[in-house]
Design a protein around this nucleic acid. Structure first.
Lengths: 115, 115
DNA sequence: CCTGCGTATGCCTTGACGGGAATATAACCA
DNA sequence: TGGTTATATTCCCGTCAAGGCATACGCAGG
């Protein structure tokens, strides 16, 4: 799984919306279609991209296919982000803020990552 | 600055490379051109995208333009990542004992594009 | 079997993106 | 002023991705 595949998968706002949907719970395709307002084929294609990026897995339930989030690739993003996060914390520090630098804990309520 | 602009900017590997270069220190355009092996116009265009995404700032030094990383948008990414990171940490915890790959897509041909 | 439902795939068009070459702009210097 | 360096912008083209439509595939029930 190239890092590029992961970035490309997440570059699309519809796909980020899908990923955000799956953050709540696994969902069958039909539900995702309704939620993101695309046609079913388009949605299926986006799901394929997400699958190939390793971001989602599929479980077959009769005729339905239930997609669930796979959190592993997120770790990759997190690792990529790490050096920048240090820089970011430093500049916040330079601005006189008081932030716990040892553990990132943005106490954001899980607001819907919908774009 | 839409979140989409940020993702689009980072979706390109060359731009991620530029951002990685600037992580070390600010650099003039010529240095970036040499480092990423692109033509000067292409590099300038990538820098423009990064600029419009707020990822870099420019300081003018005589004829040169020195680009520096702006860590602020990274915080945005970090915030987006937060809910997923929590999920990831949870599953790491759950996997601490037994890791079993559940049903994955079995009819996926191994045709992976190169990195 | 055949049929209906849910999902995936192929084909086609359109629009955006990336690259190079040429050119424009800006700053410095003589 | 004119020339040189450093960077930005324009034009053109090839490629690729996204979307819709039609269709094919897989699964369950009669």
């Amino acid at each position: 799984m190239s890092e590029d595949t992961l970035w490309t998968a997440l570059a699309d706002p519809h796909r980020r919306a899908i990923v955000g949907l799956l953050l709540t719970r696994p969902r069958p395709v039909g539900e995702i279609v309704d939620a993101c307002g695309l046609s079913q084929p388009s949605t299926s294609k986006h799901l394929k991209v997400l699958r190939e990026a390793g971001l989602v897995r599929v479980r077959q339930d009769a005729q339905r296919r239930v997609y669930a989030l796979d959190p592993a690739p997120i770790a990759e993003l997190d690792a990529w982000l790490a050096p920048y996060r240090r820089l970011w914390n430093r500049s916040l520090d330079a601005l006189g803020r008081r932030l716990d630098e040892t553990t990132y804990d943005p106490e954001e309520p899980p607001s819907k990552p919908k774009d």
